[in-house]
Computed example of a mutant assay.
Amino acid sequence: MNAYLILDLSINNFESFREYIEKIPLFIKKHGGRYIVQGVEPEVMEGDWCPERVVILEFPSKENAKEFLGDTEAQPLFSIRHKSTTSKLILAEGCS
């Protein structure tokens, strides 16, 4: 069953974040993932959720998504994201 990582982020330091943008696609692909939505400015349709940017990644399974997040080689990049953005991340399984 496919799984989705949904990232809501505001970029606080684009120069620092640039390295993450350039290098993280390799790790996404390594774990069978792909971009569904890549850093777009969403249009709010209901409610008070107002993310600045949204990224949605699709993985073949919840396990693949968790392996991506736990990849020791990618940790320095996640650290860059944590330091250069304000972000929220959720994992959701899709329908079979």
Rank of each mutant, 00 (worst) to 15 (best):
M1C: 04
N2I: 06
N2D: 08
N2Y: 11
A3Q: 09
A3F: 09
A3K: 06
A3D: 05
Y4P: 08
Y4R: 13
L7I: 12
L7F: 10
D8E: 12
D8H: 07
L9S: 04
L9Y: 07
S10I: 05
I11E: 01
N12C: 03
F14T: 01
S16R: 07
S16G: 14
S16Q: 09
F17N: 01
F17A: 06
R18Q: 03
Y20S: 02
Y20P: 05
Y20C: 02
I21A: 02
E22H: 01
K23M: 03
I24K: 00
L26C: 00
L26A: 04
F27N: 00
I28H: 00
K29V: 03
K30N: 02
K30A: 05
H31P: 03
G33W: 02
R34P: 07
R34N: 09
R34H: 10
R34K: 14
Y35Q: 07
V37G: 09
V37D: 10
Q38D: 12
Q38T: 08
G39S: 03
P42N: 04
M45K: 02
M45T: 10
M45Q: 00
E46V: 08
G47V: 11
C50F: 13
P51D: 02
P51H: 07
E52Y: 05
E52I: 08
E52H: 09
E52P: 03
E52K: 09
R53F: 04
R53L: 06
R53H: 07
R53P: 10
V54I: 14
V55L: 14
V55A: 08
V55N: 06
I56S: 14
E58R: 13
E58G: 12
F59C: 15
P60Y: 06
S61C: 12
S61E: 04
S61R: 09
K62D: 06
K62W: 03
K62A: 14
N64H: 15
N64Y: 10
A65K: 12
A65Q: 14
E67A: 15
E67F: 08
E67V: 10
F68W: 08
F68E: 08
F68C: 13
G70P: 12
G70A: 15
G70K: 15
D71F: 09
E73V: 12
A74K: 06
A74N: 07
Q75A: 15
Q75R: 15
P76I: 13
P76F: 14
L77Y: 07
F78Q: 06
S79F: 13
I80L: 13
R81K: 14
K83M: 05
K83Q: 11
S84Q: 04
T85N: 01
K88G: 04
L89E: 12
L89R: 13
I90M: 13
I90N: 10
I90Q: 07
L91C: 12
A92D: 13
A92T: 15
A92R: 15
A92E: 12
E93W: 11
E93C: 14
G94D: 13
G94W: 08
C95G: 05
C95E: 02
S96L: 04
